[in-house]
């Protein structure tokens, strides 16, 4: 063996220092963020990164040292993500999300949101009509443990007591528990609607229509007893937000399912990815909406019995969401 050193060894000896320097910087960024680098280090980072990318390319064609190859592949990947992944402050992300991404995503999927609204309304009308014509049908739509004793045999006074909180006086503290329960429970249903859409459309439809059916039967029961005004004052203050969120989740689910069935000009996979991400944006926003709804439902509704205030809250939330999803974030995204 007269060879002094292999080409791959020479190659490595000449560049190893810079590899290790980049590795140190990348490790530091991964641990403590890009702000922990000094100005000089920040300046070096992209240069070193290009050096390693170049080394990787050469090493692939001249070196058979598996350890060097794997090291360079790994280092290139890590530094690629550091160099090309813009890291924004969490505050900026949240603000951009609220003022732009979320309402825009909803507008993008408005057809599907409308569809999920339509499905709910169809369910509502069907159950409303059937229950109104024959109160016995009520049991078809509302399961006993959901109605909590409110069924056709209840008297007007009993129903009214529930709506206007005239039963046993509730403590304000247990309302907190009630609110958190409502929030987690409802949000879970909404997220389920989104997740279901990813697979069978039919199930989203079923879930939405069932929601409508229960509502319709409920409305019919109270109409029969002459309690419509009180019922809606009981439902709407939080219902505007909550039902809207359920419909948005349902719409998001529909969109993903439809994207899979009718991909249009994209490939099926691409089309699902586009719809899936937009739907993800909506699902997260809906968690926030459920949270607001639960606060209204858990505290406000239990404490305030004045019809005018109840209806004005419903109106205000309704107008707010119309404004929010109609107009907020329509301008170009800030650079």
């Amino acid at each position: 063996m007269s060879e002094i050193a292999l080409k791959s060894t020479q190659f490595r000896q000449e560049r190893e220092k810079r590899w290790r320097e980049l590795e140190r910087l990348v490790t530091q960024v991964e641990k403590r963020g890009i702000r922990s680098l000094t100005a000089d280090e920040l300046h070096d980072l992209p240069v070193l990164y290009r050096g390693v990318i170049s080394s990787l390319s050469v090493a692939r064609s001249i070196s058979l040292d598996r350890n060097v190859l794997e090291y360079l592949e790994g280092l290139a990947v890590r530094s690629y993500f550091v160099v090309y992944s813009p890291r924004r402050r969490p505050g900026e992300v949240v603000i951009e999300y609220l003022t732009h991404s979320f309402p825009q995503a909803v507008r993008d999927l408005k057809v599907w949101v409308a569809l999920s609204m339509a499905v709910t309304v169809v369910g509502f009308l069907a159950a409303y009509g059937m229950t109104l014509s024959n109160l016995d049908n009520y049991d078809l739509f509302v399961s006993p443990d959901y109605s909590a004793g409110r069924n056709p045999s209840s008297t007007r006074e009993e129903l009214r007591a529930v709506l206007m909180n005239e039963g046993e006086k509730v403590e304000s503290q247990s309302l907190g528990v009630f609110a958190t329960f409502l929030f987690t429970h409802n949000a879970q249903i909404g997220l389920l609607c989104y997740a279901l859409g990813a697979v069978p459309l039919l199930l989203v439809g079923l879930l939405l229509i069932q929601n409508g059916l229960i509502l319709g039967a409920f409305a019919a029961l109270h109409e029969q007893k002459g309690l419509s005004v009180e019922l809606w004052s009981w439902l709407l203050p939080h219902g505007v937000t909550e039902l809207l969120a359920v419909m948005l989740c349902g719409g998001a689910g529909f969109a993903v399912g439809m994207a899979a069935i009718f991909p249009g000009r994209r490939t099926r996979l691409e089309s699902m990815v586009v719809a899936g991400r937009r739907a993800g944006v909506i699902a997260i926003g809906c968690v926030g909406m459920f949270f607001i709804a639960a606060l209204i439902e858990g505290f406000f509704r239990q404490l305030v019995n004045d019809l005018t205030i109840r209806y004005s809250v419903a109106l205000i939330t309704g107008l707010f969401w119309i404004y929010y999803f109609g107009w907020v974030g329509r301008k170009a995204r800030p650079a």
Binding site: S101, L191, A195, R277, R278, A279, G280, V281, I284
Partner: peptide
């Protein structure tokens, strides 16, 4: 972030 949520909510 939306990709992360989309993949995990399912």
């Amino acid at each position: 972030v939306e990709a992360i949520f989309a993949r995990n909510l399912t």
